[in-house]
Write a protein that binds this DNA or RNA. Sequence first.
DNA 1: GTCTATAACCGGATAGAC
DNA 2: GTCTATCCGGTTATAGAC
Lengths: 184, 184
Amino acid sequence: MRSASAVFAEFGYSGGSLRAIAASVGVSPATLIQYFGSKEGLLEAVLEAWTEQTHELYARDLQGLPYFRALAELMTFHVNHRGLIELFLTMAAEASSPVHPARAFVQRRYGQTFEEFSRHLRETRDHGETALTEREIATEVHMLIAAMDGLELQWLIDPAFDLRGLFEVYLDQAITRWTAPRGS
Amino acid sequence: MRSASAVFAEFGYSGGSLRAIAASVGVSPATLIQYFGSKEGLLEAVLEAWTEQTHELYARDLQGLPYFRALAELMTFHVNHRGLIELFLTMAAEASSPVHPARAFVQRRYGQTFEEFSRHLRETRDHGETALTEREIATEVHMLIAAMDGLELQWLIDPAFDLRGLFEVYLDQAITRWTAPRGS
DNA sequence: GTCTATAACCGGATAGAC
DNA sequence: GTCTATCCGGTTATAGAC
């Protein structure tokens, strides 16, 4: 399963052949089909495994601002498990095509992340630490997700990129913005 | 040429077949090979055309802050010419693989954008409008590129996404940060 | 359960007709 | 110049042996 993820992550869904995956796993392509029914079935299994892996990481008991601060640690984990990001971003870009088998997954994933981030930001507001409107929350969450994806993308292209450090800068600026007294 | 770009943009390099491109253009696959030598040759031509198209847009006489403010208009153009972004982001994500034929192009492109943005931000500093250190400039440029790519990615997944509006928010915050008196 | 063998098809690329 | 026809390797998927 980890092998399949790695191949899809590196070559995309179109570019990642069952043969390559089978060879990487150490079985025959036929065996993969037996297990997963089809290439698309294998992709679904890979995406499901991806979701489980990332859920373990996100599933913390943190709420509000501490939750966001913990995202920086998540980045460090990502740097040490490159495949997770590589898989998601490759699928996300490939899935700009409406017929891509991972499109629904990517859309769902973005929706869930948006909701989760929004919930924690509302939590922050309800505790009186911020005074953001609903609209501002939506804006900030979209920008936070964009910063994460965009920095990750630059890191994929250039492994020397300081992903954690730059994300921490963004995060600090964002939290400052959220908690600072309202400007005009 | 525009047809080929559209196919590569939608299906990626692996997923975009010569047959599909040829059908889209209205010629035979053999004709494409005659012109471009190989599929990879065709991709190079597509990327070159992409560079020319975007260069026309960036090539303004604006310097410093007005240059950055003009990026918002660029976003509007992108919204109306989805293929440009779709092609670049699809290639960028696919090119996380070291053997991808577009990898060098994507790396070069990121480098050029980084240098161009940095130059304009230095310009801003030299005019006394900002007081950013070299390191801060590099950080801000990386974050600006990340915001652009990340927001564009969300827009590709969800066409209803307000790309221009959200980017303007980011841009305003960034310019405020650059021009505000130094905090502690 | 996993493999080998193979079917059925699609990929890029070539040869040669027009 | 562009097409048709074709080659050949790769792709997914199936059938049946072990």
